[in-house]
C-alpha cells in the first residue's frame, strides 16, 4: 500500500472524526431532541454498558450464529444445485423454470408463511435466511460451471474421467470466482434477513433488541445495536475479500 493511499485513508478517517465531533457538538447544544438522536457519547456508553453488564454480547453471538448457519445452508444448497443445473441440460430443463418463478419472490414476504409453517423458533429464522441467501450462490455457481473452458471438459472426456471427478476437479475449481462473488452477495442478504426475521420473531438476537428499544424510545440502545450490525456486515465483507484474494492467487499467477 502506497504512502499517498495511507495518507488519504487517514484524511478520510479524520473527516469521519470531524463528523462525529460535529454530531457531538450538535447533541450537546440540543440542536435536535436527544430523544431522537443521542450524541455519540451516549451511544458509546450504551454500547459499553450493554456489552459489559447487559446481554449485548450474547445477542450479538446469537445473531452471528443465525447469519452464519443460514448462510452456510444457503451456500451448500446453492452450490450443489447450481452445479447440477449448470452441468446437466436435462436437470436445467426440469428445474430452471421453477427456480425462475421462485427467485423474484421477495424473501421477506416468505416470513409469514415460514412463521405459519415452522412457528417462531430457530428453524423459521434459518429457513428464511437460507431461502433468501441461496439465489446469488445458485446463479453464481450456475454461471461459473457453464463457462468452464470446453477444452478442459473434452480432455476429461477423453481421459474417461468419472462425472463426479469432473465436477470436483474441473467444474467447481473454475467456477470459484463466480462462487465467491455469490458468497459475498449472499452474506449481505443473510445479514439483512437475519435482522428482519429476528425483528419479526422476537427471541434473543440483535434484531429483536433494536426493535424493542425503538418501541421504548431508547434511541441510544437502538444506535448501539445498529452499529454492531454494521460492524458485522463490514467484518464479513472484509473477511470475504481476503479469502477472495487468497483463493484467486493462482489465477493471477497463471
Amino acid at each position: 500500500m502506497s504512502v499517498s493511499r495511507l495518507a488519504w485513508i487517514a484524511a478520510s478517517a479524520l473527516v469521519f472524526c470531524v463528523i462525529v465531533a460535529a454530531w457531538q457538538q450538535a447533541a450537546d447544544a440540543r440542536v435536535f431532541s436527544p430523544v431522537f438522536f443521542p450524541g455519540p457519547d451516549r451511544i458509546w456508553s450504551a454500547l459499553h454498558r450493554g456489552w459489559t453488564q447487559g446481554d449485548l454480547a450474547a445477542r450479538t453471538a446469537t445473531t452471528l450464529g443465525h447469519m452464519l448457519v443460514g448462510w452456510l445452508l444457503a451456500s451448500v444448497v446453492g452450490v450443489a444445485l447450481g452445479a447440477v443445473i449448470g452441468l446437466s441440460p436435462l436437470a436445467s430443463a426440469y428445474l430452471k423454470p421453477t427456480l425462475e418463478l421462485l427467485r423474484p419472490l421477495p424473501a421477506s414476504a416468505t416470513i409469514p408463511v415460514a412463521i405459519a409453517l415452522l412457528g417462531l423458533g430457530e428453524s423459521m429464522v434459518l429457513a428464511v435466511i437460507a431461502f433468501g441467501a441461496v439465489w446469488p450462490m445458485l446463479v453464481g455457481t450456475m454461471h461459473g460451471v457453464q463457462s468452464v473452458e470446453p477444452r478442459l471438459l473434452e480432455v476429461a472426456h477423453a481421459l474417461g474421467m468419472p462425472r463426479r471427478r469432473v465436477i470436483r476437479d474441473i467444474a467447481l475449481p473454475s467456477a470459484i470466482p463466480d462462487i465467491l462473488a455469490g458468497l459475498r452477495l449472499s452474506l449481505t442478504v443473510a445479514l439483512i434477513l437475519t435482522a428482519v426475521t429476528e425483528m419479526m420473531a422476537g427471541g434473543d438476537g440483535l434484531g429483536a433488541a433494536i426493535l424493542d428499544a425503538g418501541r421504548l424510545m431508547r434511541s441510544a440502545n437502538v444506535f448501539a445495536g445498529v452499529a454492531i450490525l454494521g460492524l458485522i456486515g463490514m467484518a464479513g465483507a472484509m473477511l470475504l475479500s481476503i479469502l477472495e484474494a487468497r483463493c484467486l492467487r493462482w489465477r493471477l499467477a497463471s
Binding site: 469521519f16 430523544v35 431522537f36 449481505t188 445479514l191 439483512i192 435482522a195 428482519v196 425483528m199 434484531g207 433494536i210 426493535l211 428499544a213 425503538g214 418501541r215 424510545m217 434511541s219 437502538v222 444506535f223 445495536g225 445498529v226 450490525l229 454494521g230 460492524l231 458485522i232 456486515g233 463490514m234 464479513g236 465483507a237
Partner: peptide, 16 residues
C-alpha cells in the same frame, strides 16, 4: 462505515 448497515436495521431509528 455506513454502507454495511442493513437497511432494515434503521427501521427502529425511524420509528423513534
Amino acid at each position: 462505515l455506513i454502507r454495511p448497515v442493513p437497511p432494515v436495521a434503521i427501521i427502529p431509528i425511524l420509528i423513534i
